[in-house]
Computed example of a mutant assay.
Amino acid sequence: MSIKVAALSKSYGAQKALDSITFSVKKGEIVGFLGPNGAGKSTLMKILTTYINADSGTASVNEYDVATQEQLVQKSVGYLPEHNPLYLDLYVKEYLAFNANVYKVAKSRIEEVINLTGLTPESHKKIGQLSKGYRQRVGLANALLHNPDVLILDEPTTGLDPNQLVEIRQLIKNVGKDKTVFLSTHIMQEVEAICDRVIIINKGKIVTDTPLDRLVTEKEQILEVEFDFKVEEQLIAQIPNLVSYKNIHDMTWELVFSAQEDMRPIVFDFANNNGLKTLQLNQKNKNLEAIFREMTQK
């Protein structure tokens, strides 16, 4: 396992930031780590990168224990914290050269990460002259400098404009082809665009740990349908695979199904068989944002 966490807890005074959480991440996965503010996301990332210690439980990265094998963990991890710490007076190449010396990696690696992160057009500038998007690229380039097996990214797209968001997402997705990526974010579209799996944490506890496709597709199928005539409840109840139904207004019904197949053709057939016309049919399946709210507001 690239990341393994077992019964991990951390408190700040009376506040329990992490409450005995357990999960693992396989090599090559891109995992979105979600939760409201104060849920414990940054605390976990700081523990995994050896910045702080847990109160109890264990955690390892690339089979190295974060509490007893700090240097080996640090060599295995590329970390981009939420507030990207950069020296704004240094040139891009100067900053990366400084960190290359710290990591004791070959100078040729600097050009490799500049190309990999799309920094080439701006690499001659001081970091302070760069846009927020390019500063994030510098942070990612620095995280990749020592070619780590695991990338831990804490809110990597905070403050970016829509174009920059797309560029950084694509960059993370490309990097994730041969590395494990553990990604914290508040942006649900980001998770839907790049992640294989979702872990949601709330009040220090994991409330779900599920592959993204299963989390979204296995939820109930919700259809809103309007017929051309008022339909009796007894007739609606005959539609196959119905979990529940509700008359919203006159001839409009909300139908909730539990089924893997698309139920829209079934509703059309029901209308046709009963001499009805379907005036309107809308799918209202829950997206990740709705699922997140549901999980974190219980």
Rank of each mutant, 00 (worst) to 15 (best):
L18Q: 09
F23M: 10
Y103A: 05
E232Q: 15
V181T: 02
N285R: 13
S20G: 07
A97G: 01
I194T: 07
N247W: 06
N147R: 07
I266A: 08
T208R: 04
K277M: 14
I266C: 11
S60R: 06
S9T: 15
S123V: 01
R197D: 08
V138L: 10
G28Y: 12
I200K: 02
H146I: 08
V113E: 05
L153C: 09
L279E: 13
L140T: 00
A141G: 00
F270T: 08
T180P: 14
S9F: 07
T252W: 03
S108N: 09
T296R: 02
L160E: 03
L276P: 09
A143V: 09
V92S: 04
T296Q: 04
L34Q: 14
L116G: 02
N247L: 11
V231M: 06
H146V: 03
T68Q: 09
E224Y: 05
V243N: 09
F33M: 12
K230W: 00
I200A: 01
Q129P: 02
F227I: 04
K179A: 06
F182M: 00
F23N: 03
L160Q: 08
L119T: 01
K284M: 10
L86N: 10
I168V: 15
W253N: 04
D262L: 03
W253K: 02
M45K: 03
I47E: 03
Y12I: 04
Y95I: 08
V102I: 15
M45I: 13
K126P: 04
G176K: 01
K104R: 13
I114P: 12
V166P: 07
E190I: 04
N84H: 05
L281I: 15
K41A: 09
H249E: 10
Q260S: 15
K26G: 01
V73M: 14
T50H: 04
A290H: 13
L215Q: 09
Y12Q: 02
K179Y: 03
H83F: 14
D228M: 02
T68S: 15
L223S: 03
G13A: 08
I199R: 08
N53L: 14
Q136F: 04
I127K: 02
F227N: 01
P121G: 10
L223R: 06
A259M: 05
N274I: 14
A100Q: 13
A97I: 05
R214F: 04
D149V: 07
M295G: 04
K26H: 12
I30H: 02
F227D: 11
S9C: 10
S42A: 07
N99A: 07
I248F: 09
Q283D: 12
I201M: 01
N282Q: 13
V25L: 10
M251L: 11
D196W: 01
S42R: 06
Y134T: 05
N273T: 00
E167Q: 15
E111K: 10
R169L: 12
L72R: 11
Q221H: 14
T252F: 05
N247H: 04
K75T: 01
V267S: 09
